[in-house]
């Protein structure tokens, strides 16, 4: 589904990604871990199409297409979704109204008829249950005055509405207490199936107890320096990141 080869990216004059390789197939969950500043969020941003990042080398192929040539909204039309680490607050735009526009623009791009108000509402009700989110929250201005947990639940709600093929969760666990974490993770697990893939970007192993990954990769200095299964995450939790840094230094 996703094939990243030798990806190099910089922001302003800072080179962040230095030859990153990653293969993700449908049905898989990959965790990207790594110390602060290793390039985790940059990877998420580059995949979603954030303009400030410049790809200087390498390729990203997604479902046979050159992902990097697509505008952010075109990536969404193709089924890419980014759950933000810091969801943006937009005063005056309610989640419901903006999701209606989003869902229908995606449908239009896919050559489908727009959903009428009734179908949209029933779809919304169904997805709200997944993330245990209240409609009153969705009527309010997008993320404005939301708690950390509410913002992250709203991200997963949007993911549920858009049914992406490739979801990238950027530090979705940050700022969540254990109950909120469980709700968010349950939502993600219910959305997980053999046709979609999920990349979980996280600093801590905690989230991976709830969203169990098939593969764990360690990102350091803009490259994946170690890959393994979920046991690798436990090892990182126990030993920290220093031994990885040492290993890389030796090589």
């Amino acid at each position: 589904m996703l094939s990243i080869k030798n990806l190099h990216a910089k922001i302003e004059e800072n080179q962040i990604l230095n030859g990153l390789n990653l293969e993700v197939k449908a049905g898989e969950v990959h965790a990207i871990m790594g110390p602060n500043g290793s390039g985790k969020s940059t990877l998420a941003s580059v995949l979603a199409g954030r303009e400030e990042f410049e790809v200087t080398d390498g390729t990203v192929e997604y479902l046979g297409k050159n992902l990097l040539a697509l505008a952010p909204e075109e990536r969404a039309h193709e089924g890419v979704f980014l759950a933000f680490q810091y969801p943006v607050e937009i005063p005056g735009v309610s989640t419901i109204n903006f999701m209606k526009t989003a869902v229908n623009q995606v449908r239009e791009a896919r050559g489908q008829q727009p959903l009428d108000a009734v179908s949209f509402l029933s779809l919304m009700k169904e997805k709200m249950k997944l993330v245990e989110i209240d409609q009153s929250l969705l009527n309010r201005s997008l993320n404005e005055g939301f708690s950390g947990g509410e913002k992250k639940r709203n991200e997963i709600f949007q993911m549920a509405m858009l049914e992406p093929k490739l979801a990238i969760l950027d530090e979705t666990d940050s700022g969540l207490d254990i109950d909120a974490l469980r709700i968010v993770a349950n939502g993600v697990n219910k959305l997980r199936n053999k046709n979609n893939a999920i990349i979980v970007v996280t600093h801590y192993q905690r989230l991976l107890e709830y969203i169990v990954p098939d593969y764990v990769h360690v990102l350091y200095k803009g490259r994946i320096v170690k890959s393994g299964t979920k046991e690798l995450a436990l090892e990182l939790e126990a030993k920290g990141y220093d031994w990885i840094k040492d290993e890389v230094a030796v090589v």
Binding site: A48, G49, R50, E51, A71, P72, E73, R75, A76, H77, F81, L82, F84, P87, V88, I90, P91, G92, V93, F98, M99, T101, A102, V103, Q105, V106, A109, S141, Q158, L162
Partner: peptide, 27 residues
Amino acid sequence: EAIFYLQTRGISKETARAMVLYAFALE
């Protein structure tokens, strides 16, 4: 950042701009 956020949900840049500005004016 708000425009980018809306774009990642599949909304065109033009619509995203209009949305944010309209919300601003609506108050």
